[in-house]
């Protein structure tokens, strides 16, 4: 067993681009689900919109990178509005079904052969991240703490931008949730009729939460696309959304640090177990499974973890059990 490799991979995943992507996706869900009680099951769609906005703007149309960023943020807001208008007045599970359907629509559109000239079909798009990496201030080389942590200069640039985005999003959320605005959201999560009877436009607040969460989700999409220098439609399936929920619930919903710590821990554990098992299989320590089955085991553990968390510790690591909305209806 190569413990250095295993721990190194796990730690790198815990602070790497996956952790950033899922932290941002979960921060978005935290606004919607954690604080407001809205079930957005289509966060993957918002990530896809962010990722493809950059990719299509730059790779397909040859327009500037920052225009792509702007389009991504705008489209995410538009999608949230489109989804919210019909469903926010209805029961919670309608929003869940509509958002999950919308995310699938986004994925099916970008992977379609008919539109492959624009979106690249199932292969997706590449060659759009040049101007992003041109801004990279890190000179080539290895950075980190050998032998555990080591990133090349491109990764360092992605990580810097990504964690700064996480920090900004969390700070804004922190300020917003301390304000009377945040108070209205938390009240809506608990009983929207009571809030309505006090003269607050509940629909508008829910919409704001949906838009803000979706826009933060699109930022996760930016990092997803840039860190891989590629977009591929099937990476934005509903499983992504559910992993983000796992991350959020693991860290603790309705807590500012919940999504961040949840995401770091999620990836640390997932890679630790995955790499550990792979290593054990390769070195012959474990003989009854194959390397490819390790992936399935990882998936099973995510599902199992989500179930056990909700049953035994729905407040996650940081949450306050008195404050979570899971039992609300």
């Amino acid at each position: 067993m190569d413990w250095t490799l295993i721990i190194s991979r796990a730690v790198e995943a815990g602070i790497g681009s996956e952790a950033i992507i899922y932290a941002l996706a979960a921060i978005g869900l935290n606004v919607q689900f954690g604080y407001t009680g809205l079930l957005n099951f289509g966060q993957a769609g918002f990530l896809a919109i962010g990722a493809y906005s950059i990719a299509v703007t730059v790779a397909t149309f040859g327009l500037p990178f920052f225009l792509g960023v702007g389009i991504g943020l705008l489209l995410a807001a538009v999608l949230a509005l489109l989804l919210g208008i019909p469903t926010l007045r209805l029961r919670a599970d309608y929003l869940a079904i509509v958002t999950i359907a919308a995310a699938e629509i986004v994925r099916l559109v970008v992977r379609s052969v008919a539109l492959s000239d624009t979106f690249g079909g199932t292969d997706g798009l590449q060659a759009f991240s040049g101007s992003f990496y041109d801004m990279n201030p890190y000179p080539p080389g290895e950075y980190g703490i050998p032998p555990i942590i080591g990133f090349d200069n491109r990764s360092m640039w992605v990580l810097t931008v990504g964690w700064v985005l996480v920090a900004i999003a969390s700070f804004i959320l922190f300020m917003a949730m301390k304000s009377p605005w945040g108070r209205v959201l938390k009240a809506i999560r608990e009983d929207e009729d009571a809030v309505r009877s006090l003269g607050k436009n509940v629909f508008s607040y829910k919409m704001q939460a949906l838009v803000i969460g979706g826009v933060i989700g699109s930022m996760a999409g930016f990092i997803f696309a840039l860190s891989r220098s590629a977009v591929q439609p099937d990476l934005y399936s509903t499983d992504l959304t559910f992993y983000a929920y796992t991350v959020l619930i693991l860290g603790g919903a309705a807590r500012i640090l919940g999504p961040i710590v949840g995401s770091m821990l999620f990836w640390l554990l997932l890679i630790l177990i995955g790499t550990g098992l792979e290593n054990a299989v390769n070195t012959g320590t474990i003989t009854f499974i194959t390397v490819n089955q390790v992936g399935a085991i990882r998936l099973m553990l995510v599902g199992l973890g989500l179930i056990l968390l909700l049953i035994y510790r729905p407040q996650g690591i940081f949450g306050d059990k008195r404050e979570i909305s899971l039992d609300a209806r």
Partner: peptide, 9 residues
């Protein structure tokens, strides 16, 4: 959400 976890599992 538990049913989602079960589905993944």
């Amino acid at each position: 959400i538990i049913s989602i976890g079960l589905a993944l599992f």
